[in-house]
Design a protein around this nucleic acid. Structure first.
Lengths: 151, 151
DNA sequence: GTTGACTCCGTACTCGGGTACGGGGTCTAG
DNA sequence: CTAGACCCCGTACCCGAGTACGGAGTCAAC
């Protein structure tokens, strides 16, 4: 049974110590368990759980959703898990559609810009200033952070 | 010259009053201008500017980027505007790629689930618990708020 | 002349997923 | 036995784009 300190656990899962502690605060990992001396030690089960969290996250599940996933039972909750995944697919697809629309609007502006002659006002800025389109909905950014650790 | 109060301006652009004031604080709209009595009045130029902001935002530009766009000159900054739009396209495309990967991973899980017989443990939860994949990078959500106003 | 809707201004809070900091305690190698 | 690395715990802060709230002033209509 390999006993990991929080630092070793974090490193094995590719996250920071603070992140582990944050997951504990959120209730995704249990904060009380075996101690060796004054320090808590973590086993393979907890490492697996931590990796589960990261995998689910990388598939687009929020930490709240990950908590729900963790509460499912591998034996009896197949239906629920599948429904969950399917609704997440729908979710992802709608975000893809939105982005695709944004891209084509932007491409429209750029190609318009490329086809107008030099001494004309910028068609992109002009379109932004005067476009007849209704201003629909802005959207947040999907920032992608990568590797943590090792400063 | 139609003079709008802040509330009328906001409504014409489909945003909330607080949003207008927020843009003023961010320097996207000027906070000092004509007054009629004790209240500030806004003209068509300011309405146009506000709509510009929303349109750019809906194309994926952050408010900081919108500020840069607003600083461009329609006559002399065509190059810059086009480069800006092009880099935003690249941006959007990379988000699309990410989401597409997420979708196919999810679809893999679901179809695997559909092809295994009933009395087996849930393949989705199982995969999340044991997948060999390296846990790469999670990603933030592109939440899409829509119309504001009208509570 | 008062009611109700609106404006002004400032500060503080929201959400999500962490990161940073600081003062202590502890563990281990040299 | 001491230095340096690590742990514990709590609190506060970051980002982006707003939203909420509260007190005070003001305006238009009835």
């Amino acid at each position: 049974m390999n006993d990991l300190t929080i630092g070793a656990l974090a490193k094995s899962a590719g996250v920071g110590v603070e992140t582990v502690r944050y997951y504990q605060r959120r209730g995704l990992l249990s904060p009380n368990g075996a101690h060796k001396g004054a320090f808590r030690v973590y086993g393979n089960d907890e490492l697996a759980r931590l990796r589960f969290i990261r995998r689910a996250q990388s598939l687009g599940f929020s930490l709240d959703e990950v908590a729900d996933l963790l509460a499912l039972d591998e034996e009896t909750d197949r239906e629920r898990a599948r429904a969950f995944a399917q609704s997440k697919i729908a979710d992802v697809e709608s975000r893809i559609r939105q982005l695709t629309e944004m891209r084509s609007a932007l491409q429209g502006l750029v190609s318009c810009c490329e086809h107008t002659e030099a001494p004309a006002p910028c068609p992109i800025l002009h379109a932004l200033a005067n476009s007849p389109e209704p201003p629909p909905a802005p959207q947040g950014k999907a920032r992608t952070r990568s590797a943590r650790q090792a400063p």
